[in-house]
Computed example of a mutant assay.
Amino acid sequence: MKPLYEDLWISTPEFPAAEQQPELMMHGFMLRHPRGNLLISRVEHPQDHNALADLGGVMRHYLTHWHEAAPGALAIQQRFNNPLYCHARSLGPVSRVVEPDATFMAQESHFGDFHILPSPGHTPGSCSYFYHSPWGKRYLFVGDTLTQDQSGWRTLIVAESNLNDLHNTLARYRTLQPDVVLMSSTRGHLSWQEVNAEQWQQAINEAERSPLDVRDGPSG
């Protein structure tokens, strides 16, 4: 784990088999919330699990979609005894790897300031998280709904994606005002990007124009 901001850490990157996706890089994030450490997305490396222990453990773990259900989530749950959260429409596939403790279907807020935003489209159970840090930055965790590659901002379409839902989710993103966008996977690019209001609208425009269709290949 390495720090990005005063209260936000990023995990060691994961790379799938080179012959499948040579530029694909996956990350998870740890948010140091006043109530305890929140883990978002997947964190598989054991050295990161040790770093989490040094940073005070994990109070809750949130998945952005079921593709993040991996052995590391179970290892973290067993080590830190933390509840695992996901969207209800991700429950079935997530449960084949690790048992969630709670699910959600609609927008809600945890601790009054950590906002859960169901974001269907990439998968039926995709979800985003929005948090206005007391240090000033507004973080938006988008999972794989948005990503970046060498061509710029993209939406990620897999076999289970719903294009109408994805369009509606991107329209909802337009109403948000993040300072930092945090992605679970990217291709040849960093997994976070600072944006201003104009850049954020341009990013969504670009993603809508140039979707990344991987329906015939591995998904993120």
Rank of each mutant, 00 (worst) to 15 (best):
V43W: 01
N82C: 14
Q150N: 01
G72P: 02
G121T: 02
R89Y: 13
W200F: 07
D216N: 09
K137Y: 04
W192C: 07
P22C: 05
N82Q: 12
G220Y: 11
R215G: 04
L190P: 12
H115R: 12
Q148I: 01
E23K: 07
V214L: 14
A51P: 03
F114H: 05
S191T: 11
G72R: 01
H49S: 10
D179K: 03
T103N: 05
Y62F: 13
D144L: 07
T123H: 12
S210G: 01
E14T: 08
A69Q: 10
H110I: 11
R89E: 13
G121Q: 03
F15K: 15
T12F: 05
Q201P: 09
V94F: 04
A88E: 12
A53W: 09
L39E: 10
S95G: 05
L4T: 09
P83A: 10
A203H: 06
L24Y: 04
E6I: 00
A197S: 15
L52R: 03
L38R: 09
S109V: 07
H132E: 14
L38I: 11
L163S: 11
G152R: 04
A73T: 11
E14R: 13
L31C: 02
V97S: 12
Q21P: 09
R174L: 10
R187V: 06
D216Q: 08
Q177C: 14
H65K: 07
R89N: 13
L176R: 05
N196Q: 09
L163R: 13
T145L: 09
H33K: 05
S41I: 06
P93H: 03
Q47K: 08
P13D: 14
N164T: 15
P100Y: 02
W66V: 03
S219H: 10
R32G: 14
I204G: 08
A159E: 14
A102H: 08
L31S: 06
F111P: 12
L156Y: 08
S210Q: 15
R35T: 10
Y131F: 11
G143H: 07
T145N: 09
S191L: 09
R172W: 12
R187Q: 15
A70N: 13
E23F: 03
Q21M: 13
F80K: 07
V195T: 03
P46Q: 12
G56T: 04
A159Y: 06
A88D: 07
N162M: 01
R60W: 11
R42N: 12
